[in-house]
Design a protein around this nucleic acid. Structure first.
Lengths: 403, 403
DNA sequence: TATTGTTTCTTTAGTAGTGAACAAAGGAGT
DNA sequence: ACTCCTTTGTTCACTACTAAAGAAACAATA
């Protein structure tokens, strides 16, 4: 299929991962879902069956032809670890092949501490060692920042105060597992694409509303990372001439006007909340019926809608997924967002679907774990050496532990 | 060869196309450039040499090891036809494998005429029949609009007044050649990626300034087309709250403020040019030193710079290519554009490269032709059935005549 | 001048993948 | 009943591709 076919047995891994992600599947569906020929699927599944990784289940009812025989994973359970790194805490999850969370933990953390790296590796390897899964495929890490070298896992993050930190190498040594690191929003977009609302869509946008505004972009089925891995910074789209100065140094960035701190400041200045009240207070007041608070959210929604309309016109997605802590008060944002988006977008795109997702804090970590779960599908070696290791662990699991 | 085998040896075609695009190349460079193993290149080139499609040229000087043997195309000349469709004229070019234009023609045309389709097919097939090339690989068409069904070549274009027009089928019947159709800006982006400034870059932006403002987006090495093929409409990014109404129906679109007609209107209103003077007059006056005219361009450049800064923050390209008739007066735009872009973009991206390209009218048509020339590199079948036909013509050229 | 290292190209042996034809197992119409 | 149609899964012959190892042809260095 690809111009260079796989060195490791990519499709063996992809078959297992596809069944993990979609549940029991017939051979014909596997062929269609993976874009392979039925002949190859026959061969792959025969091997996987004789290796004891798959079992034949019941027949699914006929759809006009020969009934399909479903194939399911055997009890051998695969899993992956996902880690969300925030300035003040770590969230860890363990997930199965289908992306479902099986274990969770939250730990105190201080990213600016000199011992932060040691603390991180200790926490992660402790979490790994308590794993209930028989086979851990790898560790995915999502953080607010970007990865300079995917192979070595060198990380840059202004928000965490990290510069050129060899996080990947450290975690790999500590856990003995393959480690994949990416920007947290990109990881979320990947998770949406594999397991979430984005499944089956080739072009969509994941917008996160937290302390800042970010976006993950999926175009042509792939996550857009950009030249230096910094794509998706929609929070810094200029929206107001002579607007307030943003942290990034520019004037009138979207985030400088509707970011969390900007909203709080506006609310305080207008006397809607007290000098020491925060965003939750503002949201609570708005939900209680306070029109001034509601107007603050609606105006923010309006600006966000106009900005995203520009992104939609530029990228032509078919779906927008709204996510993040800030999405809890989406009903207030939406009042301004919906009309602004629909009226500012080109006529043909006016019916674009907008999905708002409920929020659990471990969602970020789940996204990070999907960095690992997505590698079997990553036919070309985008994920590089670490991805190859993940695939190797997935298909070698019969051998138990290779010496 | 009684039954022409339907085998589409992608890499055989890719090898020829790579040599056509890059000139004489050593086997080792082919392996690196195409991402294939040296072993395969040896086999492919051996076949191509024995088929008389390639010849061994001189040795290039050693770079510390065994000197490389260059391989070049034989005199068998391949070519492709590119057609630009505009509301009032057609531009046709014939290009070689390397993208160089070998023949040009411009024809009167009226897209709104009921006989437009017949006129178009007649013009194109007449141009094809006068071809100097021994082997025409196909016809590429670029138009302001989008393609609904790539396989049938059904076309929609508000600018041309076409709706559900089966252009591809008609051209295929008329010429007997594979036909590939795409939005003209996407075609241009493809040409830039293969033969132009974008060569070697995986993420860049092609911005066109004509009657409207458009963009072609290349992300991760591929042209971003979006869900319905409408990506790149940066002319409709909202930039002004309560701005003028745009043709598209929205308020404050970029194009409604700095599009060609908007600039002319502004200049007339301010008395800079007369009531019947156009954009060339405005540009001439600005070049002559008129400060009011210069300010109009600079302010447009400023707005464009802010808007593109948003796109840059969203997509993180490493290069911006400015192109189009309007780019002739870029030196006036640039006064406002450069400071606006650099100051509105995130700090790390402040050094982004901006390239302005000179303009010939047949550039659009050249872009259209590159739709054909790019298919050999298109490993997955994005270009579908027509792409397969192009590849078949490229590798079967020894056989001579198709049925 | 021999040694070492580098780059280019080829051979060998084996794996991954496909298309085409066909068998198996049902449904729907007559 | 019987034939036609559809969908699933398999076998077979063949192509495409790779990894590994080596051969060939140079430069640099001791």
């Amino acid at each position: 299929m690809a111009i260079s076919s796989a060195r490791t047995d990519t499709n063996r891994a992809a078959t297992l991962a596809h069944i993990g992600a979609h549940g029991a599947t017939s051979r014909a569906d596997l062929a269609r879902g993976l874009g392979l020929s039925p002949a190859l699927i026959t061969k792959l599944t025969r091997d996987l069956l004789s290796d004891g990784l798959l079992t034949e289940l019941e027949h699914s009812p006929s759809r006009g032809g020969r009934p399909a025989q479903l194939l399911g994973l055997t009890a051998v359970s695969f899993g992956a670890i996902g880690v969300k790194v925030a300035p003040d805490h770590l969230t860890l999850v363990e997930v199965g092949l289908g992306g479902a969370v099986t274990r969770t933990a939250t730990e105190q953390f201080d990213a600016s501490d000199t011992m932060a790296l040691a603390r991180l590796t200790d926490t992660v390897s402790a979490f790994c060692s308590h794993s209930t899964q028989a086979n851990l495929l790898g560790v995915g890490v999502g953080l607010p920042g970007n990865v300079l070298e995917q192979s070595e896992g060198v990380v840059d993050s202004t928000q965490l105060g990290w510069s050129q930190l060899p996080l990947g190498l450290a975690l790999r040594n500590a856990t003995g597992l393959p480690v994949l690191i990416d920007n947290n929003v990109n990881a979320l977009a990947l998770a949406e694409s594999l397991f979430g609302t984005g499944r089956g869509h080739e072009n969509f946008l994941v917008v996160t509303i937290g302390t800042g505004i970010g976006a993950g972009i999926v175009a042509g089925g792939a996550v857009v990372r950009g030249h230096s891995g910094n794509a998706g910074e929609i929070g810094h789209i200029p929206v107001a001439e002579n607007g307030p100065r943003c942290q990034c140094g520019a004037l009138g960035c979207l985030e400088a006007i509707i970011g969390q701190s900007a909203l709080i400041e506006t609310a305080r200045r207008e006397g809607v909340i007290g000098a020491d009240a925060g965003i939750t207070a503002l949201a609570a007041i708005a939900s209680g019926g306070n029109e001034a608070a509601q107007r603050i959210f609606a105006e923010a929604g309006h600006l966000l809608g106009r900005a995203i309309a520009g992104v939609v016109n530029t990228l032509d997605p078919e779906l927008i997924v709204i996510l993040g802590e800030g999405a809890e008060s989406w009903k207030h944002w939406s009042v301004g967002f919906e009309p602004a988006l629909r009226s500012s977008v080109m006529p043909r795109k006016r019916g674009i679907e907008v999905a708002v997702e409920g929020w659990q804090d471990d969602r970020w970590a789940q996204g990070a774990a999907s960095l690992v779960l997505s590698t079997p599908f990553d036919a070309d070696g985008v994920s590089g050496e670490q991805g190859r290791l993940v695939r190797a662990r997935l298909i070698d699991s019969t051998a138990g532990d290779p010496s």
